[in-house]
Amino acid sequence: MADRAQMRKIISILVRNKPGVLSHVAGLVTRRAYNVESIAAGPTEDNSITRITLVVSGDEQVLEQVTKQFRKLIDVIKVDDIPHELAMTGELALITVAFDPSRKSEIMNLVNVLGMSVQSIGLDSITLQVAGSAQRVDTAINGLYPFEIRAMARTGLVALPVTPAGAQ
């Protein structure tokens, strides 16, 4: 059989906000050997419901199975596949960067250009925050290449479908 094309997709899952739900979701990913690039969970407008956003990669058949298997979990209320082109995505990253005090102005310049904000600053390191689309976060991280990144924390992608035009 020919190699099946690998794709990525964003899956947004609404689940009952109960203890153990994340174990069920994470357990499914492991036991079915799915390839998950990021997973983010957080509250929604209804506090009995949690939204979990996953970025999954695989071939078409695997990605279809992922959606169906998640739908099967008892705590899952709704599963939405959000095609990339129809997704509003957001992510946040905190990055601690080391710098030589002599290059302080250089790094401050980069911070401005990359649209990052300063969370804390010390003698030889600075912690920055960037938020926005995944692409924007990637750009910011890549832009820091002249410096040594000491630590980084990314939240993973969250997503909602684009509001259809005229729906305002």
Binding site: E64, Q65, R71, K72
Partner: peptide
Amino acid sequence: VDPAEIGKRVP
């Protein structure tokens, strides 16, 4: 009755 079984191994 289980949609996840449909197409799981045989399309």
